[in-house]
Write a protein that binds this DNA or RNA. Structure first.
Length: 500
RNA sequence: GACCCCAUCGUCCAGCCAGGUCAGGACACCAGCCUUUCAAGCUGGGAACACGGGUUCAAAUCCCGUUGGGGUCGCCA
């Protein structure tokens, strides 16, 4: 299988902000592909039709391009295996699911979602770790067809062995084995007719000729299901390589609650794409020479997949900042730095969007600097004692600001009008006067109690920086315990529906 | 909780696979130098093989156990 042409893929799910974890996976896939004269395929895994959005997909492509990751095939550039968006390949998955049904490797399950919980609990009680639908497994094909034809809702499940071991091979870990009894009969086709990740990724990886699946460690526990699918189809599986997961400073899986994770944030905060990519390359891998500053091409020249280390690396912002500083100091003269600055934010368009907000507050041209500096910053320092809301304790305000962050996470349209609308609704439903609600936000966002108009300023700052600054305000107020957070989340969902 | 993965300075890595130099580099931290200040730069410093058993003349390196961390246990990916 090592003779096969190298074809790897990065397969993000367009369900939110472009994530640095995606960039990390993309970098290693890209580097591996280039080092082996192979191809990188970008595939959009949008089979979760409730959460996938075109905006998110566009943002992901844009972020990866910004970083300098180049893919050879993808939804935007096409390729011999188009389409590269899973929502456009549903027919293919259904055909393959049918094939599995015919072969007896999968079965229809007619259990309702409610009954499912009970059944699962029962099986657990009997000491069964996986899950299977005995009725569905036994059901004759005729009966199964009849019930399906009559319009009864169903899912298609993979028929997993009830005993024995599954022996898997991981490029970095060697052989890993797991009891089949631990593995549930994975749903392949959901009741909405869309495939789950497990089916879609195996079918696509095969059809697209993927030679190596390089993905996050979180997938290792579902590898048996994937392997079983390859076997059921009679396909040769690719080489699997699970990369460690990026971590928060407390070692938990990198999450937006504890660390900025959106690529867009790093862009807006003034990090250079080369530096961010270089930094990501330092996590789990190093140059043989020990040099820590390197270009992607230099990395490609030295990269060997088997050299990746397995400890979950902490995403250390301080080191990223240092590296970024080296790029700024070592790779630029005044002219090219000016260009970088213009490219980043110091350009006519951005300035002309900011200026109308400052103009009414300017008596001299020199007022411009202090009035608008916060537009061009990452963090904006504020006086924590300014962070208050009439009749609310610090804890209550923290909770309130967290609610605002969640609400903003769902805000696709970040125009002043849309933001105003959102905040009016927020103020109504929280029964807080809009004036009062916005005051702490001025402090968090602009560093001052009085500044340029909030919603217009927010629109210019952009969602990533806005949410980060509010999150920092929450921290400044003492933060929220995880218990408190869970409570708050419940209240939030009761009030505004489920969050992303 | 069950299963799986992982384990070198606070953090990121090198060393491990082919046991044998004071365990090396970087970030951060501290000190000094340079300097009109602050950075940057330079020099130096403190800082780790999780623990316990084996195997061996010899273990960070190989094996087992313990502990710790992480992941998974969805009609999310």
């Amino acid at each position: 299988m090592s003779d096969r042409p190298v074809r790897v893929r990065v397969a993000p799910s367009p369900t939110g902000d472009p994530h640095v974890g995606t960039a990390y996976q993309a970098l290693f896939n890209y580097t591996f592909a280039r080092s082996r004269a192979g191809k990188l395929i970008l595939r959009i895994e949008d089979t979760d039709r409730a959460r996938s959005t075109p905006e998110s997909e566009a943002a992901i492509l844009e972020s990866l391009s910004w970083l300098g990751i180049e893919w050879d095939e993808g939804p935007d550039v096409g390729g011999p295996h188009a389409p590269y968006r899973q929502s456009e390949r549903v027919v293919i998955y259904r055909q393959h699911a049918r094939q599995l049904l015919d072969a007896g490797s999968a079965y229809r399950s007619f259990i309702s979602k409610q009954a499912l919980d009970q059944l699962r609990a029962d099986q657990r009680e009997q000491g069964w770790q996986g899950f299977f639908d005995a009725e569905g497994r036994e059901m004759s094909r005729e009966q199964s067809d009849r019930r399906a034809d009559s319009g009864e809702p169903f899912v298609i499940r993979l028929k997993t062995p009830l005993d024995g071991d599954c022996v898997m091979k991981d490029l970095l870990r060697g052989e890993v084995s797991k009891e089949w009894a631990q593995i549930d009969d994975q749903i392949l086709i959901k009741s909405d007719g869309y495939p789950t990740y497990h089916l879609a990724n195996v079918v696509d990886d095969h059809l697209m000729g993927i030679s190596h699946v390089i993905r996050g460690e979180e997938w290792i526990s579902s590898l048996p299901k994937h392997l079983l699918l390859y076997e059921a189809f009679g396909w040769q599986p690719p080489v699997f390589c699970h990369l460690p997961l990026l971590r928060n400073p407390d070692k938990s899986k990198l999450s937006k609650r504890k660390n900025p994770v959106s690529i867009g944030y790093y862009q807006r905060a003034g990090y250079l794409p080369q530096a961010l990519l270089n930094f990501l390359g330092l996590l789990g891998w190093s140059m043989p020479s020990g040099e820590e500053k390197f270009t992607i091409d230099e990395m490609i020249a030295e990269f060997r997949l088997e050299d990746v280390s397995l400890g979950g690396p902490v995403f250390d912002l301080r080191k990223l900042r240092w590296l970024n500083g080296r790029y700024i100091r070592e790779d630029h003269d005044a002219r090219s730095l000016r260009l970088a600055l213009e490219n980043w934010a110091l350009n006519a368009t951005r300035l002309e969007s900011i200026l109308p907000l400052a103009q009414p507050r300017m008596d001299a041209l020199s007022d411009w600097g202090y009035l608008t500096a916060f537009f061009l910053a990452d963090e904006e320092p504020f006086d924590p004692t300014d962070l208050k809301l009439k009749g609310k304790t610090a804890d209550e305000l923290a909770a309130l600001l967290q609610t605002v962050i969640w609400r903003l996470e769902q805000q696709r349209d970040f125009t002043p009008e849309a933001l105003q609308q959102t905040f009016r609704e927020l103020s109504d439903s929280l029964e807080i006067k809009l004036r009062d609600l916005t005051l702490p936000l001025y402090v968090a966002l602009t560093g001052k109690t009085a500044s340029t108009p909030l919603f217009q300023s927010m629109a210019i700052l952009g969602s990533d920086i806005v949410r980060m600054r509010i999150a920092r305000a929450v921290d400044a107020l003492g933060g929220l315990s995880s218990k408190k957070l869970r409570e708050l989340e419940k209240q939030y969902e009761a009030r505004f529906g489920t969050r992303g």
